[in-house]
Design a protein around this nucleic acid. Structure first.
Length: 425
RNA sequence: GGAGAGGUGGCUGAGCGGCUGAAAGCGACGGUUUGCUAAACCGUUGUAGAGACUAAAUCUCUACCCCGGGUUCGAAUCCCGGCCUCUCCGCCA
């Protein structure tokens, strides 16, 4: 959420930013108009309240002396009615303003390239050698079927399309990967491991910015109005909602494994084969809560922490700095990490590392008391470290051999019971 | 799911419908004293909003004692609804 004061003082800058993010800037004028009405109503209302307080005091003094106060009481009743009418006006205006404000996207940072869509993203880094094959590399779904580790026919029988059933070494590989990732982030990168709830309430979903805009993309349990987490970002960042932290306790680094649930509404027909785009997937997430002046350095190190996983797995990847049009609603700056999948012949997004500045902190009301005792909003960041299905895709497709077996990278072998190759059982 | 108890500032804990933004204690911060530390003593110690040419400092006002309504001239205090916590019972992995 943006600061209403900031919008008031910089309406053109905000509108420009919204246009760059390909959202509708018209609501800014509407917000400003409603805000003017709101403030004048507050002013009038508060003056009346002040008057009422004075009169009430008079009543109390008269009564103490045993005198009749009915004239003043009558007068004050009328003031009370007027106050009520202003309060009604305000209780109409405030949710309107708030709803509009919650739908205004964050402003991109100044060094974010202005652009329309993924075409305009800027590749800022490429790592690893392109793997060459002396045979035609297979796709992960072919490999999964041959090795009997991935069974998409049966998962769609159980749940529907977009769900994954892993078997045998496929299941083990999944578990190996998120354990490995959590170990790297906790041991080498200083993150605290968390295991959060997988169902969260509306306030949490609003805090990180999934609601109100993206409700259609979320799984919701109707009876209790709880949402299945679309990412660990939601429960983890909301840990400190409505809290005041000390400058001594931040930065906070958290990592958590959760499954992630996404309806993927509106993406029908995209990436329908295999496990590139699914409704439920596993992910290890990195979340940082930091001081504003450090957040851009923290973003760079967060990105490196996520990249480290691919480096250790020996998978080729590249890093894209997203343009304004491709960034998410809440982000001020965002890098995507894309891993090369030779079987499908594509780079696949496995991580999005974002700095939200104080956009989420404002929604969640997470502040900290700085060295001078002042209250300020923290900055929040997060990134996948990493999303599993696409990492599995890259792994299977990159390490496949002519006979369909897949070698296991050395770092994963201890997590896989010591085996160095997955063969058909 | 049933029965009961309770939610007050950073924490503990008072609070009669007006004199309570809130006693007292603890903690924290500043100061005096001290070679240093401790102790003692003195002082300070919430947040948000609106307004004052106002960006900062300052001042004025308003609101906030879990949240939302209501009663009243006036609510931390009375009434209703909700949320949360604790205890007991039931059910259950």
């Amino acid at each position: 959420m943006l600061d209403i004061n900031f919008i008031r003082n910089n309406p053109d800058r905000v509108k420009q930013a919204i246009v760059h993010k390909h959202e509708n800037a018209a609501s800014i004028d509407q917000i400003l108009e409603l805000d003017t009405q709101r403030r004048s109503a507050i002013h009038a209302c508060e003056q009346l309240k002040s008057k009422r307080n004075e009169k009430s005091k008079e009543v109390s003094e008269l009564k103490k002396k045993g005198q009749n106060a009915s004239a003043i009481i009558e007068e004050t009743k009328k003031i009370g009615d007027e106050i009520k009418s202003y309060e009604e006006k305000l209780s109409g205006l405030e949710p309107q303003i708030n709803n509009l404000l919650l739908r205004i996207p964050n402003i991109p940072a100044t060094d974010v390239p202005i652009g329309k869509d993924a075409e305009d993203n800027v590749i800022v880094k490429a790592w690893g050698q392109r793997k060459t094959f002396d045979f035609a590399p297979m796709s992960h779904w072919e490999l999964g079927r041959i090795l009997n580790i991935l069974d998409l026919e049966r998962s769609s029988k159980i749940s529907g399309s977009g769900f994954i059933l892993l078997k045998g070494y496929g299941a083990k590989l999944e578990r190996a990967l998120f354990n490995f990732m959590l170990d790297v982030h906790t041991r080498e990168h200083g993150y605290t491991e968390l295991f959060p709830p997988f169902l969260v309430n509306r306030a949490s979903m609003t805090g990180t910015g999934q609601l109100p805009k993206l409700e259609d993309d979320m799984y919701r349990t109707a009876t209790d109005d709880l949402f299945l987490v679309p990412t660990a970002e939601v429960p983890v960042t909301n840990i400190h909602r409505d809290e005041i932290l000390s400058y001594k306790e931040i930065p906070l680094y958290y990592t958590a494994y959760t499954p992630c649930f996404r309806r993927e509404a509106g993406s029908y027909g995209k990436d329908t084969r295999g496990i590139i785009r699914v409704h439920q997937f596993n992910k290890v997430e990195l979340v940082k809560i930091v001081k504003p002046e450090t957040s851009y350095n923290e973003l760079e190190s967060l990105l490196l922490n996520a990249e480290k996983i691919l480096q250790l797995l020996g998978l080729e990847y590249r890093v894209a700095k997203l343009c304004t049009g491709d960034m998410s609603f809440a982000a001020a700056k965002c890098y995507d990490i894309e891993v090369w999948a030779p079987g499908v012949g594509k780079f696949l997004e496995v991580s999005s590392c974002s700095n939200f500045e104080d956009f989420q902190a404002r929604r969640m009301n997470i502040r900290f008391r700085d060295e001078d005792g002042k209250l300020r909003f923290v900055h929040t960041l997060n990134g996948s470290g990493l999303a599993l299905p696409r990492t599995v895709i890259a792994l299977l497709e990159t390490y496949q051999q002519k006979d369909g077996s897949v070698t296991v990278p050395e770092v994963l072998q201890p997590y896989m019971g010591g085996i160095n190759v997955i063969v058909k059982k």
